[in-house]
Design a binder for these strands. Structure first.
Length: 492
RNA sequence: GGUACCUUGGCCGAGCGGUUAGGCACCGGUCUGCAAAACCGUAUACGGCGGUUCGAUUCCGCCAGGUACCUCCA
């Protein structure tokens, strides 16, 4: 079996993945800031790293997957006044900040569950790790790489850059950054524009605040990931993931903080998923062009021609490689919906196939082809293309135009189950929902009706036969006639 | 302005120095009481101009167009 290669943003190339400790993988991914409804942009990293998580486990690694919940910090852009997002939203809605954070965290979990994204091993909240963050800042201060101004603590990027290189991840150099950074209005306590806050003193009206050696305040933008990553995965760990938009400054600052506190880098492989675009432009909160996941699931958004199921969204995302941008459009989503349905129909059909005495089509390479694609930096579109090739085989066998022996048939079932369900995490929610809730009795009832229809057809009683089909269709049950019987599924 | 990336057939989207990606749509066919669906099959491509090479969509240069980051953002 070949080795797993992952694209490491730090070195801008694919590298063989070798964990720090054999058999163990530490994975950290930047999670959501819980101050708004989850949108399509949130789905991409969640699904990308969900697939990585699933695949690493499949490879036999013991994985600890940490994905944070940002419920404090993150200064707002016009907020040199020192107001953070959570607090601002809370005041608008006259709620406790933690109430707001909890609400959106729950919403996030709901959406992710629907997308069949597995929960991480640990999901730490920034607000629950203020002590760790303070300790982390202390270490940076002890190393002389931060300074205190009126109760706030800033990282001294210029000083850091004397000994280390600030910009190794994003490929920027500090001189250009200094000359190009727009000077923000108002006071700056920072010695240099490139410096960033480790701790911010809270303004009097600021309600999210914690005591610290320096002031009552809150941690800076980038601190939580360094502190919590170190806490749960150690001073050095394997993989850190997140969206490409976090590459700079967020991840660059994390590196500086870690080196500043620990004396060495923490992360061995940096992975970044690309953005989802809408009309060629990034779908983002700041641009106001995002569509929430709930809007996708219900179809209630002016840009949407219809509702799209969570699995359609998941499939749509997996059809592109995670490092490419994906352009959203109704057309593309509808194509995904049909493609997914074709795949799922084939799986359902697969379990009705009877083994033949001989095998006339070659499916031997399927498993290794899928594995090879996954090992090549998680090339999920290629995995899907192989599964579509196998779909063709299933259909041929179903039509009696090819046959598979017992061993090959079992292999085909095993590979589909492994890749489609376990690794890509797709589920069959077209037939699933009604079938699962109503159970076997419901299925048998439909089968009974359709058997009656078969009898009517044999008597050429087209009126009865059409009536059964049409009324079932009205209830959302789609009937397809086949050579020697029927197939049906609930389409809602 | 700085940095990085992208440009593939009607649409989406992989990939690679020489061999069919795949999906959706289209067209042709099979099946069918009808219809729908389903299934099978064919076709269409690599932004422009140069260069390297026996050969480039794939490597290099230039040009055009686009995107992202440089400010919170997945």
């Amino acid at each position: 079996m070949s080795d797993l290669f992952l694209y490491n943003t730090l070195h801008r190339k694919k590298e063989r993945f070798e964990p720090l400790h054999p058999g163990q993988v530490g994975l950290y991914v930047c999670g959501p800031t819980v101050y708004g409804d989850p949108h399509l942009g949130h789905a991409r990293p969640a699904i990308t790293f969900d697939v990585l998580f699933r695949y690493l486990k499949q490879l036999g690694f013991n994985v600890r997957y940490v994905r944070n919940i940002t419920d404090v910090g993150h200064l707002e852009h016009d907020a040199d006044e020192g107001e953070d997002k959570i607090a601002k939203k809370a005041r608008l809605e006259a709620l406790e900040p933690m109430e707001v954070a909890q609400f959106y965290q729950n919403r996030y979990h709901q959406a992710m569950d629907m997308l069949n994204v597995l929960r991480p091993s640990i999901e730490p909240q920034a607000s629950g790790h203020i002590i760790e963050q303070i300790e982390f800042i202390k270490r940076i201060l002890d190393n002389g790489l931060a300074y205190i101004v009126d109760g706030s603590v800033y990282f001294d990027v210029v000083k850091y850059n004397d000994k280390h290189r600030y910009g190794i991840l994003s490929g920027r150099n500090i001189e250009e950054l200094i000359s190009n950074t727009r000077s923000l209005d108002g006071q700056s306590e920072k010695r240099n524009s490139v410096d960033f806050a480790l701790w911010k003193k809270a303004a009097p009206e600021h309600i999210m605040r914690w005591p610290s050696p320096w002031s009552d305040g809150f941690p800076g933008w980038h601190m939580e990931c360094s502190a919590m990553g170190t806490r749960y995965l150690g001073e050095c760990f394997d993989i850190h993931g997140g969206g490409m938009d976090l590459l700079f400054p967020h991840h660059e600052c994390e590196i500086a903080q870690s080196v500043g506190a620990l004396g060495h880098e923490s992360v061995r492989y940096w992975m970044h998923n690309n953005m989802i675009t809408i009309n060629g432009q990034k779908m983002g909160k700041s641009l106001g062009n995002f569509i929430t996941l709930e809007e996708f699931f219900t179809g209630k958004h002016t840009s949407l021609e219809q509702a799209y199921s969570p699995m359609t969204i998941r499939f749509f995302i997996l059809q592109a490689h995670y490092r490419s941008t994906v352009d959203f459009s109704n057309e593309a989503l509808q194509a995904s919906e049909k493609g997914l349905s074709r795949l799922m129909d084939a799986v359902a059909r697969l379990h009705t196939l009877k083994a033949g005495t001989t095998t006339t089509v070659d499916i031997r390479g399927l498993r290794s082809n899928c594995e090879e694609a996954m090992n090549d930096d998680l090339n999920t579109p290629i995995v899907l293309s192989h599964l579509f090739e196998a779909t063709k085989v299933i259909n041929l066998v179903h039509d009696g135009k090819a046959s598979l022996n017992e061993v090959d048939l079992e292999e085909l079932k095993a590979v589909f189950s492994l890749y489609l369900f376990n690794i890509l995490g797709l589920t069959d929610n077209t037939t699933g929902q009604a079938g699962q809730t109503a159970g076997e009795a419901y299925k048998k009832a439909v089968d009974l009706l359709l058997n009656l229809r078969m009898e009517a057809k044999q008597k050429k009683d087209w009126a009865t036969s059409d009536k059964i089909r049409n009324e079932l269709a009205a209830m959302g049950i789609e009937v397809k006639d086949t050579k020697d019987g029927f197939e049906w599924k609930y389409v809602g």
